[in-house]
Write a protein that binds this DNA or RNA. Structure first.
Lengths: 146, 146
DNA sequence: CCAATTTAAGTTGTGCACAATTGAATTGTG
DNA sequence: CACAATTCAATTGTGCACAACTTAAATTGG
């Protein structure tokens, strides 16, 4: 069983990189990365959010997010503002071009849907469930809480 | 279906990062990364190999492998030697400490097996199959051949 | 035979992931 | 109130992933 599990990990690693490459290609005209796209998806669906909450959703820390958000700000898709109530907090919100991207990139989910090669909704849901189990379980053997 | 497929991608991304973190923790005493470990696994099972073949197995180019192999060489787990027949080729082989690591790290597969949280062999094989399908399919929508 | 092409590895540069640290602001507690 | 502990974001540093390019060697095709 042990060797098979290392195969699971490698298969995961390969599949993840393949999907990231697919996104990279689809996003190339806008020079956006997959992680930058994920941040935009959050902002499109949930509106203004502090850096910390974005980090909770994506499980990324400020070491990753700070420079990434700076790049999104340089591209003028988002703005960052210190919170008035609590000035430790930085709120991230979309600019008008950031909002406009939602339509420009509306074709991507369907392209990705095709790219997964999964036969039907059922297969996709089964895979998601299986992946969630692996994620949770791996987090447990990793460092205390988090 | 489209949104579910983006969920598949995010689940993949999360699971992959969670497993990499788990490996990182297990490998910490030797200051090895997951990718370095993968290279060692290849060398343990297949012996001396040129850089190009390692790259084919892991789907990594020399831009990733060259510095990674240099670090493994700095740690004296491997040596690199120009091929006598074809001096474009660099052959990678294990040193004695590199060989010795195979025993030192023999506990890792079992720890990872536990970490996947998968109920049985059948579930693991189903997941691998599903991930292979996604990888292949994603590679198809990505840049021509490769 | 030799010029053009191809192949292998390395280098450079960008961005993400993550650990560790810093600094500023807030909160909790005596 | 005072001050210790906590929280949040940013910074620094390491290593991987990958694109683009370089260099050197081998192959090929005329």
């Amino acid at each position: 069983m042990a060797i098979v599990d290392e195969m699971v990990c490698f298969a995961l690693y390969s599949a993840s990189r393949a999907t990231t490459r697919a996104y990279t290609e689809l996003l190339a005209p806008w020079k956006l990365t997959y992680t930058q796209y994920l941040v935009l998806v959050i902002l499109w669906t949930e509106g203004e959010k502090p850096v910390r909450e974005i980090g909770e959703v994506l499980q990324l820390d400020s070491g990753t997010l700070s420079p990434l958000l700076r790049r999104l700000e340089d591209k003028e898709f988002i703005v960052r503002q210190r919170d008035v109530q609590d000035s430790r907090v930085v709120n991230v919100s979309l600019t008008s071009s950031g909002h406009a991207l939602q339509n420009d990139l509306a074709h991507i989910p369907a392209q990705i849907a095709c790219g997964t090669g999964l036969p039907d909704l059922k297969a996709a849901q089964a895979l998601i469930k299986s992946l969630h189990r692996v994620t949770e379980s791996m987090q447990e053997i990793s460092s205390p809480d988090k």
